[in-house]
Design a protein around this nucleic acid. Structure first.
Lengths: 136, 136
DNA sequence: GTGATTGCAAATCTTTTGCACTAAA
DNA sequence: TTTAGTGCAAAAGATTTGCAATCAC
């Protein structure tokens, strides 16, 4: 996790103006432990904390932060986008029942053999999702 | 890939009536090489082949086939669902640019170390997605 | 000031649903 | 017949977009 104090300069260097909304959302996201959020969730949280921001702006901000490298996007559900404040190489547990995500640190999962990439392509990243069910 | 001829009995044993629509979609899906489809794609293909079927029925059918074990659902894009006629244990290349999927057979990727499952959960499955970009 | 950013509401896209109609058993 | 399955159109949910108002520089 990067300290919240670094966010401001990170925004500047990416050419993103540190607006009230971006700073407030950054505080929610980065001022504490690593977390996984959806746009809807972050928006609700912002409102609860008295931050006036529209859902559209939350979407924009999440994508901008992702582009800039402050967040990474995780695909585990074909219906909803999750964003992760942990941008180091790692993988995820996905609790199918609750929709909750949990990090698996990089060393706890090891992919030894890898296939040759299709010709004319370059590797973007390898995602491992361990799907679990909460035992009844 | 299972031969198309097995589909009928597979439907019966699952208690699904072999209707005109289901059989036609099954033919498109299983009468040939393994494939990856979206609902929209399969629907378009059905129409092109003169099969009258509604998009809603295509969605229903894809999910029913998945429940019955004739298809497996792949999550690689948080905006769209993909279904795979290959139901053996395997993983995928995902071409971010084109949205295309390609199978990686089970032996070509090996996950050696696995984390302990969170207590009170049972493993559903492990998905590995190798995301590649078509080199410019 | 000027251009980036925001909010809102409308639009879009994928998927699901309600319900009358049709077809399989 | 009886019950499952289908089509359609409407609804739902997530996300994006257009545009006028607002804010950072």
């Amino acid at each position: 996790m990067r300290p919240y104090s670094l966010v401001l300069e990170q925004l500047r260097s990416a050419g993103l103006r540190p607006t009230r909304q971006r700073l407030a959302l950054a505080k929610l996201l980065f001022d504490g432990d690593d977390r996984h959020v959806t746009a809807e969730l972050l928006h609700g949280e912002a409102l609860q904390n008295g931050i006036r921001v529209s859902l559209a702006t939350v979407y924009n901000t999440l994508h901008q932060f992702t582009t800039v490298g402050l967040l990474s996007e995780i695909v585990v559900d074909s219906q909803r986008s999750y964003f992760d404040t942990n941008i180091s190489r790692h993988h995820h547990f996905y609790f199918e029942n609750s929709g909750r995500l949990e990090d698996i640190c990089g060393e706890d999962i090891i992919v030894t053999q890898m296939p040759t990439l299709p010709s004319g392509t370059s590797l973007n990243r390898v995602d491992v999702v361990v799907r679990v069910n909460d035992a009844a």
